[in-house]
């Protein structure tokens, strides 16, 4: 009997990174609980296990606070996907991804997938604002087109705003455009020493979401889960060959960073 309830070994690891207050916990909460509620600043990291078909996906929701910065590389060790989250109303939150969080991913798998996610889209984008929980999934990503017509005046000035006042219904100035995110994705690949051609395209890996309305949230997680499946399968195969797993693999992973391997 105890065998059954024994911990399901997670097959793959997904990590949420990003500055504090960008909404990492809220995104995950929206996805797992289908709800949006006030959250308290995360302490350390929180571990969740998500059933995805026959697979167990572990999700680490990390604290964005600088206080816990030292732990980041531990959470990222052996990660198959990293969700780099920023707040579309806060330029600094995008800058922080590059300055503070990108280096944490050094311990991730060599074939790790990166997604750049701009949360709080409901504050700047009327479409995301209206989007409700259910049809959030059905929203396609053509909204990128429209984003370009969004006010870009402020995006040029990289001053961090005070805390974005989330007055309901009010449309805030978008500080980070979709293009900024695409550019960041390019720089991430370069940092990782990956070829742009052989990697997943930026358009596919940059999302704008709203944990509040549910806009694009399911799309984000489900796209990622589908993308990490190959990684799961490969890992399972490797497991059959040698029973020792994690430690070995991540050592290899961190050593191989400069090698631009793609599967």
């Amino acid at each position: 009997m105890p065998e059954v309830s024994k911990m399901k070994k997670p097959d793959v690891k997904v990590v949420l990174l990003g500055d504090m207050n960008v909404g990492k916990t809220s995104l995950l909460h929206r996805y797992t609980e289908r709800k949006f509620k006030d959250t308290i600043s995360t302490v350390g990291g929180a571990f969740f296990l998500k059933q995805w078909g026959p697979y167990n996906i572990s999700i680490w929701d990390t604290a964005g606070r600088e206080q816990f910065h030292g732990l980041g590389s531990m959470y990222c060790r052996g990660a198959a996907a990293v969700i780099l989250t920023y707040d579309v109303t806060n330029w600094q939150s995008l800058a922080e991804l590059e300055e503070r969080f990108l280096s944490l991913t050094d311990t991730a798998n060599h074939d790790c997938i990166y997604a750049v996610v701009g949360n709080k889209a409901d504050l700047t984008d009327p479409k995301a604002h209206l989007s409700q929980d259910l049809d959030g999934v059905s929203q396609d990503q053509t909204e990128c087109e429209e984003d370009r017509t969004e006010p870009q005046v402020l995006s040029a000035c990289p001053t961090p705003p005070a805390s974005p006042a989330s007055l309901s219904g009010m449309i805030l100035h978008k500080q980070v455009t979709h293009e900024d995110a695409l550019a960041l994705y390019g720089r991430i690949l370069r940092y990782k020493g990956l070829e742009e051609k052989s990697s997943l395209p930026a358009e596919k890996m940059c999302f704008e979401t709203s944990a509040k309305t549910g806009y694009n949230v399911d799309t984000l997680f489900e796209t990622l889960f589908d993308l990490v499946l190959p990684s799961i399968l490969r890992k399972r195969n490797e497991n059959q060959e040698s029973p020792t797993v994690d430690l070995e693999e991540c050592r290899v992973a961190s050593g191989k960073r400069t090698k631009s391997t793609c599967c």
Binding site: T25, L28, H29, T32, E33, D38, T39, I40, T42, V43, G44, G45, A46, F47, F48, D61, A63, F68, G70, L71
Partner: peptide, 17 residues
């Protein structure tokens, strides 16, 4: 106090220094 103040998201397992 830490537990009381960090229980926002209770389904997960927290790991913190």
């Amino acid at each position: 106090n830490l537990i009381g103040a960090s229980s926002a998201f209770q389904a997960g397992e927290i790991w913190t220094p």
